[in-house]
C-alpha cells in the first residue's frame, strides 16, 4: 500500500461508500437505480396503454380482469458510466498541502464509490491531452488499476481542458463526468461544459486550490515564476495588490461557477487542506 492510498485512506473510503450515494440523476435518491422506467425484472407500476407503446409490455392478465390495456412498468437498472478527468498539469503539483495529493485522493474515493455501486468507471489524466487513462472498469477488484494509475502519474506541462476532453476518444453514454482541476487552464471551460452536456453527462466540477493560492504568503518584493510556462512576473506585495489579487481570485471562481450554472453542472470548490471525508461528502450530497 502506498503512502497516497494507505490503509487509513482505504478505510475512510470504504466507510464513505456505505454512507454515500453517487447516482446518475444526481439527486442521490436510489442505489444506482434510475427513476426512469424501462425494461427490467423489478416491477414498478402500471399505466394505461397509449398508441406507440411497446405492445410486448402489455399485461394481458390485467386486460383479462379489467378489459383495459395496461402497460407494466419496471425499474430500469443500468450501469452508470462515471468518467473522471484529473488535471495532471504542473500547476496541480503545487501548494502545501499539495493539490496533486488532494485531487488524486478525491479521484480514488469517487472511483471506489462508483465501483462499489457497480458503475463503470473511467479515469483520464490530462494536461494538454489525455495522457494516461484506464477505461470502463467494473467491480472493486479493478480499483487497484486506478490506484496504480494515480500513483504513477507525473505532473508536467500546462493544461488545456477543452482540447483534452474534446479529443478524448470514448463512447459517450448517458453518465457522470467529474472534472478535478485548478482550472488554470487554456481552452474554453464553457465549451467543455457544453460538449459534455451535449453528450448527456451529469457534470461535477471539483475546483481545487491550495491555501497559498487563496491567501498568498510572500515577502514584499519577489519574482514570480509560472510553474507551467516559466513566465516571470515581478511584484511588490502591497496591501493594494493583495486586495486586487483577492478580487481576481473571486472573479475567477465566479466565472467558473456561472458557467456551471449555465450548463447545469455541479460546482465544488475545495482547498487542498480539506479532508477527503469533507470533499466526498460535499460532492455526493451536493
Amino acid at each position: 500500500m502506498s503512502q497516497l492510498f494507505d490503509s487509513s485512506f482505504m478505510k475512510k473510503i470504504q466507510q464513505l461508500t456505505l454512507n454515500t450515494k453517487f447516482t446518475l440523476d444526481g439527486t442521490h435518491a436510489g442505489n444506482r437505480k434510475s427513476r426512469s422506467k424501462g425494461v427490467s425484472v423489478e416491477f414498478s407500476d402500471y399505466r394505461e396503454y397509449v398508441p406507440g407503446d411497446d405492445f410486448r409490455h402489455i399485461d394481458w392478465n390485467a386486460y383479462g380482469r379489467f378489459e383495459k390495456l395496461f402497460i407494466k412498468l419496471f425499474m430500469e437498472e443500468r450501469e452508470a458510466p462515471v468518467t473522471i478527468f484529473l488535471d495532471v498539469s504542473k500547476s496541480m503539483d503545487w501548494g502545501e498541502p499539495n493539490k496533486s495529493i488532494a485531487s488524486r485522493r478525491l479521484t480514488a474515493a469517487l472511483s471506489y464509490i462508483s465501483l462499489s455501486n457497480f458503475d463503470k468507471v473511467s479515469v483520464a489524466c490530462f494536461d494538454e491531452q489525455v495522457r494516461e487513462n484506464c477505461r470502463n472498469l467494473r467491480g472493486k477488484f479493478s480499483f487497484h488499476r486506478i490506484t496504480n494509475l494515480l500513483e504513477n502519474v507525473t505532473y508536467t506541462g500546462s493544461s488545456n481542458i477543452q482540447k483534452a476532453i474534446e479529443n478524448f476518444q470514448m463512447q459517450w453514454n448517458r453518465g457522470i463526468t467529474v472534472i478535478i482541476s485548478d482550472f488554470f487552464s487554456q481552452g474554453s471551460f464553457s465549451q467543455v461544459l457544453k460538449y459534455l452536456k451535449y453528450n448527456k453527462q451529469v457534470i461535477y466540477i471539483c475546483h481545487i486550490l491550495s491555501p497559498q493560492e487563496i491567501h498568498p504568503e510572500f515577502t514584499e518584493s519577489i519574482r514570480l515564476l509560472d510553474s507551467e510556462t516559466g513566465e516571470i512576473l515581478d511584484i511588490t506585495l502591497t496591501p493594494a495588490l493583495l486586495s486586487s489579487y483577492s478580487k481576481a481570485l473571486k472573479q475567477f471562481e465566479e466565472n467558473i461557477k456561472k458557467d456551471c450554472i449555465k450548463w447545469g453542472a455541479y460546482y465544488f470548490n475545495f482547498s487542498s487542506d480539506t479532508t477527503i471525508e469533507e470533499m466526498v461528502k460535499e460532492v455526493t450530497e451536493g
Partner: peptide, 14 residues
Amino acid sequence: ENYIISSLYLWQNA
C-alpha cells in the same frame, strides 16, 4: 528573489 508558483494567471489579472 525567485518564487515558483502554480500559475501567474491570477497575479496577471491582479
